[in-house]
Every structure is written in C-alpha cells, then in structure tokens.
Write a protein that binds this DNA or RNA. Structure first.
Length: 153
DNA sequence: GCCAACGTTGGC
DNA sequence: GCCAACGTTGGC
C-alpha cells in the first residue's frame, strides 16, 4: 500500500467535477512527464491512497481523499489527433503515456498549501521540495497519517 | 503577468 | 554526450 499526491487544475477537473462523475472516478489523462508516468505505470496499485490536490488556482491545496482503481492503461488522448495531449510518436502498439483511474473517497475541507508549509510534520513532503514540478508525488505513510488526522471529519 | 526551476529537444 | 534554446509548471 502506497500513498500519492496528485495535482489537478480545478478549471480542468475540480473535486466537485470528480464527485459528479460516474462512480466518482476519472481516468488520470494528460500526464506528459516521464517520472510521473512511471509512478502510475510501474508503482501504483489498486487501493493506494491519493491526496487530490488543486493546483494553478487561487487556493492551492488538498481538497479530497481518493484511491487508485484498477490497473494502469494507455492514456487515450495520446492517440487523438487535434487533442492537446496528442503525441505523434505514440502508437496503440507502442504507447508512450499511461494513466490510472482515480476514485474520490470523500471531499474534505481545504488543506491549503500554506497550512502544509507551516506544519512541522509535513516539512519533508516531496510536494514542498525546492523546484518540485511533478504533478504526482509520493506521500509517506507518516505524512498520510498526519494529513488524514488534519482532515478527519 | 512574472519568474524561478526544471525537463525536453536537437544541432554539433 | 554536451549544452543552448525553448517550453512548461505553478505559486505568487
């Protein structure tokens, strides 16, 4: 069992959008960074815990608890000509980009980036590492426990 | 809109 | 394999 933080721009898919989807589940399309892809393709397992994070918005932070559903599979948008995520070097025979499905377990209060930054037990989060730009980062079990407690209903 | 930081591309 | 140029991320 592993834990992850996954960033989504709310103008693209917000936590409310996710809650409204069938089974509150979304295919995590559009990742075009190899390290983030490898996390999904090689390391994620069903039931892994996910912190759903809003980025590039007025109030960045964790806004929901989610989980990985099913096995990784090729991101369909890489094959769609005209799609912003189209990749001409990818083929269905040799896909380049993968995704997993993510299901919202429950929406939470906003745990803002500012609050994460000031929490003594969260200083080492990969999210906060200098220059980090990854849209998917690992979360340690200890960090998960701290955040779960902060978000307890 | 700015800009720091980092990843990717492609010529050599 | 090097590295300059360019593109992207994402907080502010």
């Amino acid at each position: 069992m592993a834990y992850w933080l996954m960033k989504s721009e709310p103008k693209d898919v917000s936590v409310d959008d996710l809650a409204a989807m069938p089974e509150a589940t979304v295919g995590w399309y559009g990742v075009r960074n190899y390290q983030a892809r490898n996390f999904m393709r090689d390391l994620m397992r069903p039931r892994d815990g996910v912190l759903f994070y809003h980025s590039s918005c007025a109030e960045p932070g964790v806004v929901g608890l989610a989980e990985v559903v099913g096995a990784p599979y090729p991101d369909p948008t890489q094959f769609e000509a005209g799609n912003k995520y189209f990749d001409g070097k990818a083929t269905p025979e040799v896909p380049r980009w993968y995704q997993v499905d993510v299901r919202l377990v429950r929406k939470t209060r906003l745990l803002s980036l500012a609050e994460i930054r000031q929490h003594p037990d969260l200083q080492d989060m990969r999210l906060l590492a200098r220059g980090n730009r990854l849209s998917i980062t690992p979360v340690t079990p200890a960090e998960w426990r701290v955040i779960s407690a902060l978000l307890a209903a």
